[in-house]
Simulated scan of single mutants.
Amino acid sequence: MPSLLGALRRRLLAPSLASVGFAGRGFPVAATAATSRLEMVPQSVVCGFEWGIEDPPLWEAERRLDMVEPMFRGFAYEGATMAYTLLDVMPGRRRDRTRELLLGPGREHVFLAYIGIGFAMARLPRPLWKKVLPDLTGVPYHPTMSWLAVDGYGFDRAYFDTRKWVDEQHVPEPYPWAGAPEYFQRAVDQGLGRALWFIHAAGPTAVAEAVNRFPETRRPDLWSGVGLAATFAGGCDRDGLAELRRSAGEYSDELALGVVFAIKARTYASFVPRHSRIAALVLADLGPERAVRIADSTVVGEDHTGPEPAYELWRQRIREHFGPAQKRLAG
């Protein structure tokens, strides 16, 4: 049973399931079986947040989260990580909930857990951001993949403040995440691209039109976010995915980049659903095994000291398998 304080936190901080659904957000989406399935993604995040914000013992949180079906379990861990991050920066004695979760049962969901940290960042003043990232020494891809927290921040802002961040194309002030303030906006846009997939309920034409309303310089990162969401979350059939790939045009390499990251994250969590396999094949001509080989063969070591983040260098190496991204970006 939750404590009185935990129940109060849940009541005050947790959004309702309806409020994160497509109708609740006012998105132009027709209600179908497919869109209902897709909006279970943000609703799963809310469930994880509700369980986490009560601050139960770790074993209890793990058992609740593991009751979520594998398709949505990572999203529930996203929500729990968001909750633990908020608890860790609140006044109190404990500061290790997030670390304990991600070194323990949440370890295989660490890719999505970073995104949950970004959701927490969207609800915290910037001076507290320096406290949100736990020490995950020994966890693979840390701290390289911590840029997914900034991605999560961008997704959250686009999803919950769509007029400002999507319609008005707001550009946030840089923040020196991982010592690279010049990359902050790019990581935000990667999350914004993921959000467009949900805002338009996996409608390939509407998603492509939304991306193309942004300045050309922002489109590569938006398209990579679209590719990640389309592959990881699903929501689109083969014909729609083929249309999405055609619409991406010269940015098909960015779309494929998102595919590789999505398959890597799904594989790391030991569950690759059928829709992810289909998306990888249609969007990038990849089977899951080859996608993982590409990710693993291009990963950048933690000792990287170059001028750009190891995360982006990893992304560049993956792009090279698919197209002329480097030439386009350089030009």
Rank of each mutant, 00 (worst) to 15 (best):
M71G: 14
M71D: 15
F72Q: 15
F72A: 12
R73S: 05
G74S: 13
G74K: 10
G74H: 11
F75Y: 14
F75I: 07
F75A: 10
F75W: 15
A76M: 09
A76L: 10
A76C: 08
A76V: 06
A76H: 08
Y77I: 11
Y77H: 11
Y77A: 09
E78N: 08
E78H: 12
A80L: 15
A80M: 11
A80H: 08
T81I: 11
T81E: 05
M82K: 13
M82E: 14
M82Y: 11
A83H: 09
A83K: 09
A83P: 05
Y84W: 12
Y84N: 08
Y84E: 06
T85F: 04
T85C: 09
T85E: 04
T85Y: 05
L86A: 02
L87K: 02
L87R: 04
L87E: 02
L87F: 00
D88N: 06
D88I: 07
V89H: 01
V89R: 01
M90N: 09
M90C: 13
P91D: 02
P91K: 01
P91M: 03
P91A: 04
G92S: 01
G92I: 00
G92Q: 00
R93F: 12
R94A: 10
R94E: 07
R94L: 07
R95F: 06
R95Q: 11
D96W: 05
R97D: 01
R97F: 00
R97E: 00
T98D: 02
R99E: 11
E100N: 13
E100W: 12
E100I: 14
E100H: 13
L101T: 03
L101F: 01
L101R: 02
L102R: 04
L102T: 04
L103G: 12
G104D: 03
G104T: 05
P105K: 06
P105Q: 05
G106R: 03
G106S: 05
R107W: 10
